[in-house]
C-alpha cells in the first residue's frame, strides 16, 4: 500500500496519517530516548531508521500498520498508533507510542480508540491484543482504560511480555465500556480539564 493510499483517520483533536519522510526526526528522537525502553529501545540511528522504514513496509505487506498521530490544530506529530503484526507475533496487536513531551493529554487513548474501531469495523478484525512490558505501567493503564484485560493463557512474544486482550467488536458497539472511553476522551478535549497526578497517555 503506497503512502498515498493509507487511510486518514480524524478524531476530535487528532489526524492520523501514514508515516512520512518528514516525520522521521520526531520518531528518531523518541527512539533515541529512554521513553522507548519498553519498545525495544533506545536504538542507534541505523536501528531507528530500519524500524521507521519497517513501519511503512508493514502497511504494504499487511494492508494496515501504524499511523502517525498529528495534532489537528498545529499539525505537529504526537506519536504513533495502529495495528502491528510482525512475523514473530502470535496475534495481531494494537500498539501505540507517544513522544515523551506529548504525554499526559490522552492522545494515545483517543488515537488507539480510533484505530481499534477502524481495524474492527473497516478491516473486520474480530479481536486484538496488546503485548506490553509488565513494567510499562502507563501502557498497562491505557490498555485497561481501553477495556483490555490481561490474558494469562494467551501465548506471549518471548515470555517477557504480558498479553492484554481487547474487548470484542460486539462489546464496543455500545454500552458502558464505550461510553466510559468516550467520556474520558471528552474530558481530555476540554481545555479546562487538568488531570492530577502522574501523566498518563
Amino acid at each position: 500500500m503506497p503512502l498515498s493510499r493509507i487511510p486518514v483517520l480524524e478524531t476530535r483533536r487528532l489526524t492520523l496519517r501514514g508515516p512520512e519522510p518528514q516525520d522521521y526526526p520526531n520518531f528518531k528522537a523518541t527512539f533515541a530516548s529512554y521513553r522507548s525502553r519498553f519498545m525495544g529501545g533506545p536504538l542507534n540511528p541505523y536501528e531507528t531508521w530500519m524500524l521507521y522504514a519497517a513501519e511503512i513496509g508493514h502497511w504494504q505487506i499487511r494492508g494496515y500498520g501504524m499511523w502517525m498521530i498529528h495534532d489537528k490544530q498545529t499539525g505537529e506529530t504526537c506519536g504513533m498508533a495502529g495495528g502491528w503484526y510482525p512475523a514473530a507475533w502470535p496475534e495481531r496487536e494494537i500498539a501505540w507510542i507517544i513522544w515523551p513531551e506529548k504525554a499526559g493529554h490522552g492522545y494515545a487513548l483517543e488515537a488507539a480508540h480510533a484505530v481499534r474501531r477502524y481495524l474492527y469495523e473497516k478491516l473486520g478484525w474480530d479481536g486484538a491484543v496488546s503485548y506490553l512490558d509488565p513494567k510499562n505501567l502507563d501502557s498497562i493503564r491505557l490498555a485497561e482504560r481501553l477495556g483490555a484485560v490481561k490474558d494469562r493463557e494467551a501465548p506471549t512474544i518471548d515470555g517477557n511480555d504480558a498479553v492484554y486482550r481487547h474487548p470484542s467488536p460486539e462489546r464496543l458497539k455500545s454500552g458502558q465500556l464505550l461510553d466510559g472511553i468516550e467520556l474520558e476522551i471528552n474530558h481530555y478535549c476540554d481545555p479546562l480539564f487538568k488531570p492530577e497526578g502522574m501523566p498518563i497517555d
Binding site: W49, L51, Y52, A53, A54, G57, P86
Partner: peptide
C-alpha cells in the same frame, strides 16, 4: 522480518 519490511519502506 523488520529488514524485509524496511526494504519496502
Amino acid at each position: 522480518w523488520r529488514s524485509f519490511m524496511a526494504s519496502i519502506g
